[in-house]
């Protein structure tokens, strides 16, 4: 991974809650606050998918949120990377047999990075971001 190119344009993430229990969402925010502080490296949350390089999806994708997830994904500019945070978004997890789910996330939109855990630790989320940067670099070099 050659860091220099990606860091010349810092990585911005858009956070999408698709019906999560909040556990992953607060760990995502905990990742962004002073203890871990990835903003040192230009990693931060943005308010609009149009500004984002990475879509961070939490939750198992309920029926109601599935069309919105697709819409948000389509609004993002290429190259883009989708990162799923949490077991329920990766596989259904503890909600595997629910009647109200369209997920896991990779059945709704293409996913590049999975961060397992219920919820994953902030270190895990940061590791996922590093993987996302590597993928983004590869996508950019292909363009």
């Amino acid at each position: 991974m050659k860091l220099s190119k990606a860091f010349s344009r810092s990585l911005w993430a858009f956070h999408f809650n698709s019906g999560s229990c909040n556990g992953c969402d607060i760990e995502v925010v905990a990742t962004l606050t002073p203890r871990y502080d990835p903003e040192r490296f230009g990693v931060k949350l943005v308010g609009s998918p149009k500004h984002a390089d990475v879509l961070v999806v939490t939750g198992p994708v309920t029926h109601k949120m599935a069309p919105r997830l697709k819409r948000v994904y389509e609004q993002m500019a290429d190259p883009k990377v989708v990162m799923v945070v949490g077991s329920c978004g990766s596989s259904g997890g503890v909600f595997y047999d629910s009647y109200n789910l369209d997920g896991p996330v990779d059945e709704v939109i293409p996913v590049d990075v999975y961060v397992p855990g219920c919820p994953p630790r902030p270190e895990g989320v940061i590791y996922g971001v590093v993987q996302a940067i590597a993928k983004l670099e590869r996508l950019e070099s292909e363009q």
Partner: peptide, 10 residues
């Protein structure tokens, strides 16, 4: 209702 995961049902 957007976060309804049918927990009681499960």
């Amino acid at each position: 209702g957007q976060a309804h995961r049918a927990i009681e049902w499960m």
